[in-house]
């Protein structure tokens, strides 16, 4: 429909208008010398710096190794890989433990009563507040980062899993019992899928917290990764690199969040509330 295309074009225009105007204004003010470039470099400077950050250090030399490994030899990709590696390790440790304990606490009232007080005491402490202890216990490097990131993923996934399991509509359990389901079949085929919407919410929130924590942990406990790099750039007075690093963090965060969203929508394609989306 031509009218539909026109409306879509208008919407696209509306959505890029303000960001574009801000960038143009920012660039204009920088070039006119109104903004001190040591405080806020112009967008074009940031883009140039970002490119320098991304591209390989040396020019391609076949004697040094294959083309592909040269292509990814830039600093940015190394930093991103280091940060992502930490997020994934921490997320899987913390998320796995949160899921496991959450399922136990959801299914068993005894486990719930035993564990819940401890959970309630520890839950409000932000993972960042564990930094001093993490360094005391694990020193510097990856171990404290893994610990802090795990902690960030652990609680959202734990709490959502508990809520998901405990709120399974009893009509499903009754119908399944009527069909003869018991024990592990009941758990795998009824409780778990019924709790899945909550659990996946926990996964997304937990990932979000992990991603925050990895940047903070890298600023304090490690010498690599995107968080470390932007702090390092400040020490050298490179605001363009700080912003280039921030943009990289944003793009990666958005990418993973979009992927998780897609995955969750696919897994929950049966779910009623997704009908409209």
């Amino acid at each position: 429909m031509p009218a539909g295309t026109g409306a879509a074009g208008k919407r696209l225009l509306q959505s890029i208008l303000i960001p574009f105007a801000v960038l143009a204004l920012w660039e204009g003010l920088s070039r006119a010398g109104v903004i001190n470039p040591l405080i806020l470099p112009s967008p074009s400077k940031v883009v140039i710096r970002w490119w320098a950050y991304l591209k390989p250090f040396q020019s391609y030399d076949p004697a040094q190794g294959p083309y592909l490994s040269w292509l990814v030899s830039g600093e940015l990709l190394h930093d991103a890989a280091a940060s992502l590696f930490r997020v994934f390790v921490g997320f899987f440790i913390g998320g796995g433990l949160g899921l496991g304990l959450g399922l136990l606490m959801g299914v068993s009232n005894t486990v719930y009563r035993l564990m819940n007080p401890l959970v309630q005491i520890l839950r409000p402490i932000p993972p960042i507040a564990f930094i001093p202890l993490a360094i005391l216990w694990f020193g510097l490097g990856n171990p404290p980062a893994f610990f802090l990131i795990s902690l960030g993923a652990f609680f959202p996934i734990l709490l959502n899993t508990i809520a998901g399991v405990r709120n399974v509509d009893s009509i499903y359990v009754r119908a399944a019992r009527n069909l003869g389901a018991k024990g592990s079949v009941m758990f795998r085929r009824v409780i778990l899928p019924a709790a899945a919407p909550h659990i996946l919410t926990g996964v997304r929130v937990g990932y979000g917290v992990s991603f925050i924590v990895v940047i903070v942990a890298e600023m304090i406990a490690v010498n690599s990764g995107l968080g470390y790099r932007i702090l390092e750039a400040r020490e050298f007075f490179w605001p363009d690199k700080i912003i280039a690093g921030m943009i990289t963090i944003g793009v990666i965060g958005l990418g993973i969040d979009t992927a998780l969203n897609r995955l969750s929508n696919h897994l929950l394609r049966w779910h009623r509330s997704l009908e409209s989306s």
Partner: peptide, 19 residues
């Protein structure tokens, strides 16, 4: 106890929405 020899149809259908 409940069992499949007394099959039940519920007013709320009680279908498993994920299946």
């Amino acid at each position: 106890e409940p069992g499949p020899d007394r099959a039940m149809v519920f007013q709320e259908y009680a279908l498993f929405p994920w299946m």
